[in-house]
Computed example of a mutant assay.
Amino acid sequence: MGLLSNRVTRESLKPGDHIYSWRTAYIYAHHGIYVGDDKVIHFTRRGQEVGTGTALDLLLVSSGPARARESCPTCTAPQEEHGVISSCLNCFLAGGVLYRFEYAVSPALFLAKARGGTCTLAVSDEDDIVVHRAKHLLENGFGCYNVFKNNCEDFAIYCKTELLVAEQGRIGQSGQAISIIGGPLAAVLSSPLRMVTTNVYGMAVTAVGVYCASRYATDIGMRGDVVKVPVEELTRRLATGLLQVVESQMPMNLAHQSPQLVTH
Rank of each mutant, 00 (worst) to 15 (best):
Gly16Lys: 13
Thr235His: 01
Glu139His: 12
Ile220Arg: 00
Glu233Tyr: 03
Met252Val: 15
Val97Trp: 13
Val196Trp: 07
His132Ile: 15
Met222Leu: 09
Thr206Tyr: 07
Thr235Asp: 05
Glu232Trp: 09
Ile157Leu: 04
Cys91Tyr: 15
Gly175Ala: 01
Arg133Tyr: 00
Ser191Ile: 13
Tyr34Ser: 00
Arg215Pro: 14
Ile157His: 08
Thr52Ile: 07
Val123Ala: 11
Arg100Cys: 06
Ile41Gln: 07
Leu93Asp: 08
Ile33Tyr: 02
Ala104Ile: 06
Arg215Gln: 11
Asp17Glu: 03
Tyr211Thr: 10
Thr54Val: 00
Ser21Asn: 02
His18Ala: 04
Ala177Thr: 15
Glu49Gly: 07
His256Val: 08
Leu60Asn: 05
Gln173Met: 00
Gln244Pro: 10
Tyr20Val: 11
Ser87Arg: 03
Ala134Pro: 06
Thr198Val: 14
Asn150Tyr: 11
Val229Leu: 03
Asp37Cys: 12
Ser86Ile: 02
Ile85Phe: 01
Ala112Glu: 09
Tyr145Leu: 00
Gly36Ser: 04
Thr24Asn: 06
Leu98Lys: 01
Arg23Asn: 13
Asp128Tyr: 03
Ala104Thr: 11
Leu56Gln: 13
Val50Ser: 09
Pro230Trp: 04
Leu138Gln: 14
Leu121Ala: 03
Val208Cys: 10
Tyr99Gly: 11
Leu242Asn: 12
Arg223Gln: 04
Phe92Lys: 09
Gly95Gln: 08
Ala112Arg: 14
Cys212Gly: 15
Arg23Pro: 02
Leu111Met: 15
His42Asp: 13
Leu185Tyr: 01
Gly169Phe: 04
Thr76Glu: 15
Thr197Ala: 13
Ile178Asn: 03
Thr206His: 03
Val105Phe: 00
His132Asp: 13
Gly83Asn: 03
Ser191Gln: 10
Tyr211Leu: 07
His18Phe: 07
Val188Phe: 06
Ile41Thr: 09
Val188Asp: 01
Gly36Phe: 12
Asn146Ser: 05
Gly2Glu: 07
Thr206Asn: 01
Phe110Glu: 15
Asn146Tyr: 12
Thr235Ser: 00
Tyr145Asn: 00
Ser5Met: 03
Leu98Phe: 09
Glu139Val: 06
Leu238Glu: 14
Cys152Asp: 09
Arg45His: 05
Thr218Asn: 08
Tyr216Thr: 06
Ala239Arg: 10
Tyr28Pro: 02
Arg67Lys: 11
Ser71Val: 15
Cys159Pro: 05
Gln48Glu: 09
Gln244Glu: 11
Met250Arg: 11
Arg133His: 00
Ser87Ala: 04
Lys160Thr: 05
Gly221Leu: 12
Asp154Met: 02
Met222Ile: 13
Asn140Gly: 02
Gln48Gly: 03
Gly241Arg: 01
Phe142Met: 10
Gly169Lys: 13
Arg237Pro: 05
Gly172Asn: 02
Ile220Val: 04
Leu164Tyr: 12
His18Asp: 14
Gln79Thr: 15
Val165Lys: 06
Glu233Met: 01
Leu93Lys: 13
Pro78Arg: 05
Gln173Pro: 06
Gly172Trp: 08
Ile171Met: 03
Gly183Tyr: 09
His82Ala: 10
Leu13Arg: 09
Phe148Trp: 02
Ala255Val: 15
Tyr211His: 14
Met1Asp: 02
Gly202Ala: 09
Val262Asp: 15
Tyr158Thr: 07
